[in-house]
Structure formats: C-alpha cells, structure tokens
Design a protein around this nucleic acid. Structure first.
Lengths: 195, 195
DNA sequence: ACATTCTGACAGTACGCACTTACACTACGC
DNA sequence: GCGTAGTGTAAGTGCGTACTGTCAGAATGT
C-alpha cells in the first residue's frame, strides 16, 4: 500500500481559494483555468479533487456557511456579558459584514438556480442561516422578556434581507461603511425586538 | 427618402422579451441565439438594434425599473382613500411581489458588477428604487403624524432588503406565497412606521 | 416606376472554455 | 529495490457562443 491519499487535506486547503474566486467573479466567469491559477495548481489537479466545476462550486457554497458559523459561534462563546448573542453578532456584522465578500458566492448561485443541485444547496444554506438567526432571536427575546414581538420567523428573514441589501448597497457603491453600520444597528435592533 | 426607421419601435417591442430572458436564465446563459429565438427574429436583427449583448442587458435593467414604476404609480393614482400610497404599494407587493421575476435581472447584474457599465447602471437603478420608496415613507409618516420613526433612508433600504430576501426565499423554495405575504405585510408595516 | 434604405435569412469565424489524455515522476509499504 | 498508487506537467479536443459578411427582397418618398 504505497503513498497515503491526501485528497481530503488538499481539498480543505484549496476550498477557501475556490470560494474567494467564485465570490469575486461569479460562477460563469470563474474559468477552470482561473481557478487553477489562483490555487497555484494545474487544472488536472482540481479535476482529481472534484468531479467537475459544479462540484467545486457546491463545495464553495457550503464553505460560505461554515465560515460564517465559525465566526458567529466564536462570538457567542467569547465576550459573555456584553449583551445577548444576537446583539453581539449584530454589532460584529455592523462593522465587519461582508468584508470577505463570500456572500457573493450565494449571489452567483442565485444565477444558477435552474440547476436543481445548485438550487437545493442554496436552499439548504439559506435555511441553515435562517434557523440560526431565528434561534438567536428567540434567545434574545427570552433574555429580554419580550413576548409580543412579531413572528421571529419573519424577523429572521428580514434580518437576512437586511444583510443582503447591505451587501448589495456596498457592491454598487451606494452604501458607505457608516451607512451600513447604522442600517444594521438601528433596523437590526428593531427587528430583534420585533416591534 | 425611402422607408422610415422603425428601430425605436422595434426596440420597445423586443425589450420586455429580452428582460424576461435575462431574468429566467441570467446574463451568461442567455445566449444571443436564445435571445433571438425568444424574440422570434434572427441574431443579426438584435445586433442592428443594440451594439452588443451588454447593451441589450443594460436596456433590460432599465426596463425592470420602468415596469415597476409604471405599476406603482398606477397604484398611487388609483384607489385613493384606501390607506397611504406606501400602504397600497406594500399591500400590492404582498400578493404580487416578484411574480414577473424581473428582479432576477438585477441578480444577474450583481454577478457582473466588475464591469463598470453594469455596475453604474445597477447603482442608478437601486438608487431610483430607494428614493422612490423613501419618498413614500415620508408621505406615509406625514399623513400619520409620525415624527419619531427611524431614519427613513435606512427604512427604505430595509424595505428593499425585505423585497429582495422575499424573492430569494421564493426562488429557492423556502418561502411560500402565504409566508411572503405575512413577511411583507407585518415587517413592512413596522419599517414604514419606523418603530 | 424608381432609387434607396430598411429588413430578413443564412452560413461562417474566431475564440474561450470545460474537460481529457498521456506520461514522467515521486513517495511509500513490503 | 520494487511494485503500486498518488502527484505534477503539458498538450490537446470538441463544443458552445458572441459577433460578422453577404445578399436577395420589401417597403417607402419622389
């Protein structure tokens, strides 16, 4: 049995680079040649790690969620005492939201939803984001003794929308950093409280 | 002087078809052959009306705004007495939002923002949408005597975000029609009032 | 009727891109 | 050291696609 297989490790190593590439130029324009160049490897190597370009993209979608979750969960663990978890995440996003541009992977995916696999993966990703946010809203309201807020489900969607439009505004140069901060902070608070 | 030029008329006639095509399959996948097929003409004809594919896309972006505005302005003119203009638009969108899928043209554009012309056109479009909504918020609050709501500018962005995420949710199959209705209605009302 | 410009159909071209084949080389277990 | 299976490099290949050249015919003002 010669040479152990390092594929898994290599995939893990290249995935962030792929995600960044898809984020920057979208799905169609991220040519396999460009992906390989950014990874510093030959195209063949990518094709040995993933079946095709779509598989690379699907993996990148998952990476977006996992990266966000890692950061958010870190915020929940650390910094106890400075408000509820939801407030801490909101405050963090108010200053750092979208700075890695990974959300653009999701935009790229929305352009490919007529592909069933892409659509399914996007659905799973958005659902996971939504549930996570909704749970934080529940926690927040429980901690604050809020019982009459609007449906937490709807509020979670609205918060997702807030993040999305904030990114779009940045993308097209309509929202400055300061504007995004007040947007996420003020409106975010209202949605959290639900009234 | 033989045969008057009907280019303008023809452009006007084909533009909705182009917009629909871009909405359905995005920019990259909307091949010129496909565009021509949907329009029922030869590719050459499209190229006589627009310089290149990008010009067709830019025109489609404008069309999205103009179509929405036509509908919304119609709602403002008609149906006086049933709430403020903002409320009427919101109620309308709650049931009809995104049913033509034209917003997907904007998603497609977001995948092409590294092109300066596309980015500029998107910025102009989002700005116009934002201003229109903001003005409706001002009117609403004036009519209701609301003076302590959150910044109308921010609220307008949040409403845009609400519409956007509503479309995304529909797109990936996470939000049913009923869910979108309550989302736009309940959260929309909160944002309108600003508290 | 006629000149002139618009209109429509078709084939073609150059290129970019996803994906493959082929092959030399390397590291490991026995 | 030897066979096996993983790794790196290079050169294709075939297809899809944006865009063009050509040319016959059709509609208009004079």
């Amino acid at each position: 049995m010669p040479r152990p297989n390092r594929s898994a490790k290599k995939r893990e190593e290249l995935l962030p680079v792929l995600a960044e590439a898809f984020a920057e130029v979208g799905y169609r324009r991220a040519t396999t040649a460009e992906l390989a160049r950014r990874c510093g490897v030959q195209e063949t190597i990518l094709y040995r790690l993933w079946n095709d370009k779509k598989a690379m993209f699907l993996a990148a979608i998952d990476h977006v969620y996992e990266r966000s979750l890692t950061i958010w969960d870190g915020l929940l663990d650390a910094g106890e005492g400075k408000g509820t978890g939801a407030e801490r995440i909101l405050a963090h996003e108010a200053t750092h939201h979208g700075e890695f541009g990974l959300y653009r992977v999701l935009f790229a995916g929305l352009d490919e939803v007529d592909d069933d696999e892409v659509k399914e993966r996007l659905r799973a990703t958005y659902r996971r984001f939504h549930r996570y946010i909704r749970d934080r809203i529940f926690e927040h309201r429980a901690a604050r003794g809020i019982r009459d807020g609007v449906d937490a489900d709807a509020a979670a969607w609205a918060l997702l929308g807030l993040g999305t439009i904030s990114n779009i505004g940045r993308e097209v140069g309509l929202l400055t950093g300061a504007a995004r901060r007040t947007l996420l902070r003020d409106i975010g608070q209202i949605l959290l409280e639900g009234r």
